[in-house]
Amino acid sequence: MTESAEAVDRAGHESRPVNDEVVRITDLSKTFHKRGLKALDDVNVTLRHGTFTSVIGPSGCGKSTLLKIMAGLIPATSGEILLNGKPVTGPRQDIGIMFQQPTLLPWRTSLDNVLLPIEIRSGSAAAKAHSEDALKLLELVGLSGFDQVRPYELSGGMAQRVAICRMLVTGPAILLLDEPFGALDELTREYMNVELQRICRERDATSFMVTHAIPEAVFLADQVFVMSARPGRIATVVDVDLPRPRTLDMMTTPEFGALVRRVRGTLDMGIDGGGLV
């Protein structure tokens, strides 16, 4: 804990001018025709380089659907997504993704799990050539020495850190995270939030994270998108101008509390506000 806290303090990047656009989503809609369900309606999003965006909203409002469309995993019904100026029409190497479950292959070591995206795209030889990069990534997330360990020997938090490395190994332009720490206990989750902030700052990453925990959303984000359901749309954008790097202590400050209240206030929880912290 202390090690990583130091790393966060040390990082202290200058606040860079952030104008360069990584993702631009225009008038995106998605209808699931089989069920005649309009999952997303008229979504417009701009993500700038090096920023962290949290997405929060009631269950079933289309958060995962939006993320999958951004990842090129399912097509949009209308609208356009540009990633680094090029339309997303399918999965791409410059898109990194991670889910609530670590989805590690249990028969592979941590190292081989991290190298999997390279192995799939460019073959085993290329994967082998990137071993050093993968080891550095494992070191970055605090897992040096665990490269030959298999998933069943890892705790939930450790497994998610391996998944982070796997997401980062191809050097993606955008990180898409779907409730990445939703299955972890509260303490591990807070720790992972601090870690993710440090990793994102060190890699200067552009991140887009779905979550159902308001404090987590605020803690990590430069901006919080609050979505509403039926049809799913971005109802409000809450800018978070807390200084970085953020520490867990900040979560008890009045400023943080005010932001959490603002997000909570804009959340239309529908009939069942289930799962919202």
């Binding site: 090129g72 995993l73 399918g90 999965p91 889910f99 989805t103 292959l105 999997l116 995206p117 799939i120």
Partner: peptide, 21 residues
Amino acid sequence: DADTLMLFQSMESNRWQTLRK
């Protein structure tokens, strides 16, 4: 597992790779 399958899809894994790996 559906999520792992989606992960393979995101890595542009072809059918044979997904089957074998």
